[in-house]
Design a protein around this nucleic acid. Structure first.
Lengths: 156, 156
DNA sequence: CAAGATTGAGCGTTCAATCTTG
DNA sequence: CAAGATTGAACGCTCAATCTTG
C-alpha cells in the first residue's frame, strides 16, 4: 500500500502504543459491561448514568448537562432515560424556573440498583485496570488523558 | 448512598484516573470517527478492518481471525464485511483447504479507500493522542494497557 | 459433536426534523 | 431566532438458532 499525502506517520513505538490502547480499551469495556450485565442486569452505560446522578445535588441533573457528562448524543440519552424510567430507577421532573428544562432524578429504587452494581463495577475497574498499572504510571495516564480531553474539546 | 458489601473502593486519585480515562476515551474515538466519516465516508471501525487486512499476508484474513483482532463479535463482523463488500472495498473468498473457512480480502478499491483515509486517521491519532502525551508517558501507557489486555483475556 | 460462519428478530443508536419555551 | 428536549425512520448491533464442514 502506497500513500500520497505528506503525513507525520507514527513510529513503530507510537503505533504499538496506539494499537495496545485500542485493543485494551475495547477488551476492558466489553468485559466490564459483560460482568455488570451478567450480575446486575444493567449495562455499563446505564451504570454511568445512575452513578453521575447519585453524586449530583438532589440526585438530579438536567438532560443536556447529563448528556455532556456521560458523553452521549441527547437523543441517545433520551432513550436510555426512557429505559431506566421503565425500570423505575429514574424519574423525569419538569424544571420550575426554566420550563424547557427537564431533570433526570435518581429514585430510591435506582439507588438500590446502584448499591448492588457499584461493588461489582469497582472490583472490575480495580482488577482489570487500576491494579494492572504501577502507581507512578497512573499519574502519567491521568496527565495524558487530561490533555486528550482538552485537545478534543477544543476542536468541536 | 450507602454500600453493603466489603469492597476495595477507589482512592480519590484512582477515581480521577478512571474518570478522565473514561471521558478521554469516549471523546477521542467520537472525534476520530467523526473526522474520518466527514472526510472519507468510512467509520473508524471499518477503517480498522481495512487496515488490518492491508498488513495481512495476501491482504486477507479469515473471518474468525479478523473478528478476534478487531475485537468484534463474529455476527457484527459479518455485517460490517457485508457493508464493505457492497462498497467494493472487500471481497469474500472461500478457503480451499478448510471448506468451512472464509477469507475477507482487501480489493484494489479498498486499498484506494485506505490510502485516502490513512493520513486523516493518523493525523487525528497524532494530534489528539500521541502529541498530547510526554514520550516517557507513552511507554508507561503501553505497559499498563498490555497488562490490561492480559488480565481481561485471562478471564474469558 | 465441535468449529467456522451466517441469519433473523429484537433491541439500541443516529441524524435530521419537530415541538415548546426563552 | 436559539436552546432544551423528544420523535421517527433508517441503520447498526446482539444473541441465540441454524447451516455446513471437520
Amino acid at each position: 500500500v502506497n500513500f500520497a499525502e505528506q503525513t507525520s506517520w507514527l513510529t513503530v513505538e507510537e503505533q504499538e502504543v496506539w494499537l495496545v490502547f485500542l485493543r485494551a480499551q475495547k477488551l476492558l469495556f466489553e468485559q466490564l459491561d459483560f460482568e455488570l450485565r451478567a450480575r446486575t442486569g444493567i449495562t455499563l452505560d446505564d451504570y454511568d448514568v445512575l452513578a453521575r446522578l447519585s453524586v449530583a445535588p438532589d440526585r438530579r441533573l438536567r438532560m443536556s448537562e447529563l448528556a455532556e457528562i456521560v458523553v452521549m448524543p441527547k437523543s441517545r440519552l433520551t432513550y436510555r432515560v426512557d429505559q431506566l424510567s421503565k425500570r423505575g430507577y429514574i424519574k423525569r421532573v419538569d424544571s420550575e424556573d426554566d420550563k424547557r428544562g427537564i431533570f433526570a432524578e435518581l429514585t430510591d429504587s435506582g439507588i438500590g440498583a446502584l448499591e448492588l452494581a457499584a461493588p461489582i463495577h469497582v472490583n472490575g475497574v480495580r482488577h482489570h485496570f487500576i491494579d494492572r498499572c504501577d502507581t507512578a504510571h497512573l499519574g502519567a495516564m491521568a496527565a495524558c488523558f487530561s490533555k486528550v480531553c482538552e485537545s478534543v474539546e477544543k476542536s468541536r
